[in-house]
């Protein structure tokens, strides 16, 4: 078991990155690593700074949905990024983060993970992680991006209402996972994906992401703030938006919302 708190020096020892994870703030308990990351002054938080906590008392996902996690069993961290590329590429950071999680996990477990638009990572159809990206704009100027990542690593139990859609790496593999090794892998992969996005045309990253997506051509339901609609997924455009065909045959680019694959829902699968 990896029940010991992850300390700064444990991460640095064996870390193979240039910048990501080189400045670390680690906590036993924190309200939220993203909130802390937002509050840090720039001079104390260079590019690639991470904030890691064993427990979040106010962990949250999109739209402030609560993110609950067993203490000392998972990975909860945020990374601060000052993008050196144009704004259009910033919108592809969710894809870069999802791919980095796949890279990091696949190095440890022999799975081919799948991605769902824009940043879900799935093992056999269930979510093993949550990614919450937040950016801070001063007027039209982007100041920083915070990528909040939660990975279900060694958590055994999930609330009844989540069992059909959430799992942990341990639940899927039957073995305890070395959280430190996984974290260092993910940090290296995040740095690689960031550089890939920064220095190469976006197609490089998107092409790899698309190879991990199995929803092209399938029927999906898109949930937006106060309504939902059905569509057929066609493609992901270069700006990261989801290109879908609506029931009347027209095409639409989707920039926000939750996507559910229609035939994927099987509530009583296991557990």
């Amino acid at each position: 078991m990896n029940s010991k708190m992850i300390e700064k020096n444990d991460i640095l020892n064996g870390l193979e990155t240039e910048k990501f994870g080189r400045t670390i703030f680690s906590f036993n308990s924190l309200d939220s690593t993203n909130i802390f990351a937002k509050s840090l002054p720039k001079n104390e938080a260079p590019h690639g700074t991470i904030i890691i906590a064993e427990e979040q008392t106010a962990g949250r996902g999109r739209m402030e949905r609560a993110w609950k996690s067993e203490k000392n069993n998972n990975l909860l961290f945020s990374i601060i990024i000052y993008p050196d590329f144009r704004k259009e590429k910033v919108l592809l950071l969710p894809f870069a983060a999802a791919l980095a999680l796949c890279d990091g996990i696949e190095e440890i477990l022999p799975y081919h993970l799948k991605c769902k638009w824009p940043n879900d990572v799935l093992v056999r159809g269930k979510k093993v992680s949550g990614i919450l990206l937040e950016s801070v704009y001063k007027g039209m100027e982007l100041e920083r991006i915070i990528i909040g990542i939660g990975v279900n690593v060694n958590q055994n139990n999930f609330p009844e209402e989540l069992r059909h859609k959430a799992t942990s790496l341990k639940n899927e593999s039957g073995k305890d996972i070395d959280r430190l090794l996984l974290l260092r892998n993910i940090l290296r992969a995040l740095e690689f994906r960031y550089v890939q996005l920064s220095e190469y045309p976006v197609q490089f990253l998107l092409k790899e992401w698309k190879m991990k997506n199995e929803t092209f051509g399938k029927r999906i339901t898109i949930f937006q703030s106060d309504f939902s609609f059905e569509a057929t997924m066609l493609d992901v455009a270069e700006d990261g938006s989801l290109l879908v065909e609506l029931n009347d045959g027209s095409r639409k680019n989707i920039y926000a919302g939750d996507v559910t694959l229609q035939e994927n829902y099987s509530p009583n699968l296991n557990n």
């Binding site: 999109r62 910033v90 919108l91 592809l92 950071l93 969710p94 894809f95 824009p118 940043n119 990614i131 919450l132 990206l133 937040e134 950016s135 801070v136 704009y137 991006i145 990261g240 938006s241 920039y255 926000a256």
Partner: peptide, 8 residues
């Protein structure tokens, strides 16, 4: 929000 990136 765009692509689940929440822009404050």
């Amino acid at each position: 929000e765009a692509m689940k990136l929440m822009n404050e």
